[in-house]
Design a protein around this nucleic acid. Structure first.
Length: 423
RNA sequence: GGUGGGUUGCCCGAGUGGCUAAAGGGGACGGGCUGUAAACCCGUUGGCUAGCGCCUACGGUGGUUCGAAUCCACCACCCACCA
C-alpha cells in the first residue's frame, strides 16, 4: 500500500491540493512540514492527529520539518477561532515553544536518512522589517481574495467579535514560512488541520510566484466528538501529553473510555497497528463489545507511545485494581504502587484520632471544592470509601473507614478515585 | 472624534424597582440501566449551615430608594454606524 493510500485508509486525508500527490509521494523523498501553535507549553491529544500523519510520511521515507510557531504565535491565527485572541508575551511563547519541542521529539525520528528537523519561525520572522515585508510579500496578496476566506468572512460577519488587522495579516506570515522553508530546506509539502487550508494555499501561491516552484498541501480532519464538541476535552479539561498536566493513568483512562462508535477510527489515527489488526478489533467491537478489546488496545498503544512502557504498566495496573473489583485483598505497598498514578493526598495521622466530619476531610484533601458539594455528592449516592457507599452526610472519619491502618480509598461516582494517606 | 447598542451565574441567554440565588437552554457532575460504551430516564449545579437562616453575586465606583441585576452619575471594556 502506498503512503497516501495508507493515509487515506486511516482517514488522515481531508483535502489535498493535487490529484497526483499520491504519485509524488511514491517518488523521491520529499521534505514536508507541519506547524504547531505554541498556545500552551504542552501539546494535547488533538495535536496527535497531524503528528501521526507526519510519522507515517516519515516512515515512507519523507523528511519532516516540525515548525514551532514561536513567531506566528505572537500574532495569533484567526482560523477556526470565533473571537480575537489575547496576545501572549514573547516570554510565554518562547517557553511554550520549548515545551512542545521536547514532546514532539518523541514521535519522529531525528536520526537516519529521513531525519526530522525542528525549526522555530521566530528565527526568521522576528527579524523582518515592516516596510520590506509589505513590499516583498504583501504585494503578492490580494485583499479581495483574502476577504473571501472562510475564516475571515466568518469573523467579519460576527458583530460581536470582529477581526483585528493583526490577525487578518496572520496568513501572510504563515505563507512566508512556507516560502522560507521551500527556499532554505527545499520543503515541498505542508500539512495541517483542515482549518489550515487557506493558509497552506496562500503559502503555495507565494512560493510559486517568488520561487517558481510547485508545492503541495494536504489537510487532516478536525476531530470532533459525536456531539460536535472538540475532541480531547474530558472531565472538564484538556487531555495533555505532559504527564505533569495529565497523568499517564488519566491519559490511559481517556482512551479506554472512548465510545464504540469512535474507537476504530481512533485506532487508525492514533496507533501504528496494521490494517488486519485493526480490522480484527473492529470485529471484536461488533461481536463482543462488552469486552472493550478495541478500547483497551487503543489505550495501551497510545499510552505506550506517549508515556513509555513503564508508565503504561502502572496505568494498566492501577486501572485493573480499581475497575477490576476487590480492593480488599491489596496490601499497603501494592496500594501505594497502584495509586502512585492516582491523585493522592497525605494528611496528618492525628486526623484519625480527632475524628472530624468526613466531608470536612474531603474538602481539605481537595476531593471537593466545598463542603456543600461533598454533602451533595453523598446525598445523591455518589460517594464511596473503599468501594462502600457512604450514606450519611454527618459521618465522621475514623480508623474503621480505613482500608489499611493508614490508607483509605475515596471514590466519587464511577470512575474518580483519590487515595488518602494518614502519616 | 461623534452617535447609538452592549457588559448577567462554567457558557449562551431571559429578566428592566420588591414574589430573583436570578426563567430557559447547553455543558458539567451524580444516580438508574449497562460494558469504565452509546441512547434514555431521574437528580444536582454560589458559599456557610442538621435546619430556621445568614452571607456573597448580575463590568467597576458612588448615588437615589424602606428596598436595585433592574433607576441616576461617573469610569472601564466590547460592538455597530457615521466622520
Amino acid at each position: 500500500m502506498g503512503v497516501l493510500e495508507e493515509l487515506q485508509w486511516r482517514g488522515f486525508v481531508h483535502q489535498a491540493t493535487h490529484e497526483d500527490l499520491a504519485q509524488r509521494l511514491e517518488g523521491a523523498p520529499l521534505t514536508f512540514y507541519c506547524g504547531f501553535d505554541p498556545t500552551a507549553d504542552s501539546l494535547h491529544v488533538g495535536s496527535l492527529l497531524p503528528i501521526f500523519a507526519m510519522a507515517h510520511l516519515q516512515r515512507a521515507g519523507h523528511r519532516p520539518l516540525v515548525l514551532i510557531g514561536g513567531g506566528t504565535g505572537l500574532i495569533g491565527d484567526p482560523s477556526g477561532k470565533t473571537a480575537e485572541r489575547t496576545l501572549q508575551t514573547k516570554e510565554q511563547v518562547l517557553a511554550n515553544a520549548e515545551g512542545q519541542r521536547r514532546q514532539l521529539a518523541r514521535f519522529l525520528d531525528f536520526e537516519g536518512p529521513a531525519a526530522a528537523r525542528m525549526l522555530n519561525n521566530a528565527d526568521w520572522l522576528l527579524s523582518l522589517t515592516l516596510v520590506d515585508f509589505l513590499r516583498d510579500i504583501g504585494k503578492h496578496f490580494s485583499i479581495n481574495v483574502m476577504l473571501t476566506r472562510e475564516s475571515v468572512r466568518m469573523r467579519l460577519e460576527d458583530r460581536e467579535h470582529g477581526l483585528s488587522y493583526t490577525e487578518f495579516s496572520y496568513t501572510l506570515l504563515q505563507a512566508y514560512d512556507f516560502l522560507h522553508l521551500c527556499e532554505h530546506q527545499n520543503c515541498r509539502l505542508q500539512i495541517g488541520g483542515s482549518d489550515q487550508w487557506g493558509n497552506i494555499v496562500s503559502g503555495m501561491d507565494l512560493t510559486r510566484r517568488l520561487l517558481q516552484k510547485e508545492t503541495y498541501g494536504m489537510t487532516v480532519p478536525l476531530l470532533t466528538k459525536p456531539d460536535g464538541s472538540k475532541f480531547g476535552k474530558s472531565e472538564g479539561g484538556n487531555i495533555w501529553l505532559d504527564p505533569a498536566r495529565t497523568s499517564p493513568y488519566k491519559f490511559y483512562q481517556f482512551w479506554i473510555n472512548q465510545p464504540d462508535a469512535e474507537v476504530i477510527r481512533y485506532l487508525r489515527f492514533f496507533t501504528f497497528l496494521s490494517r488486519s489488526e485493526i480490522e480484527a478489533l473492529e470485529e471484536a467491537v461488533l461481536n463482543v463489545p462488552e469486552k472493550r478489546e478495541a478500547q483497551r488496545r487503543l489505550a495501551e498503544e497510545v499510552t505506550r507511545i506517549v508515556h513509555g512502557e513503564e508508565a503504561l504498566r502502572n496505568a494498566v495496573k492501577a486501572s485493573e485494581a480499581m475497575f477490576g473489583g476487590a480492593l480488599d485483598g491489596l496490601d499497603e505497598p501494592t496500594l501505594l504502587d497502584v495509586f502512585s498514578e492516582v491523585p493522592s493526598t497525605t494528611l496528618p495521622a492525628e486526623t484519625l484520632e480527632i475524628q472530624p466530619l468526613l466531608t470536612d476531610v474531603l474538602v481539605e484533601a481537595g476531593c471537593f471544592p466545598s463542603k456543600g458539594e461533598a454533602r451533595r455528592m453523598i446525598k445523591s449516592g455518589g460517594l464511596y470509601v473503599n468501594n462502600e457507599r457512604i450514606e450519611r452526610e454527618d459521618l465522621r472519619l475514623s480508623r474503621d473507614l480505613c482500608l489499611t491502618p493508614s490508607m483509605a480509598v475515596v471514590r466519587k461516582g464511577k470512575k474518580h478515585y483519590q487515595l488518602l494517606r494518614f502519616q
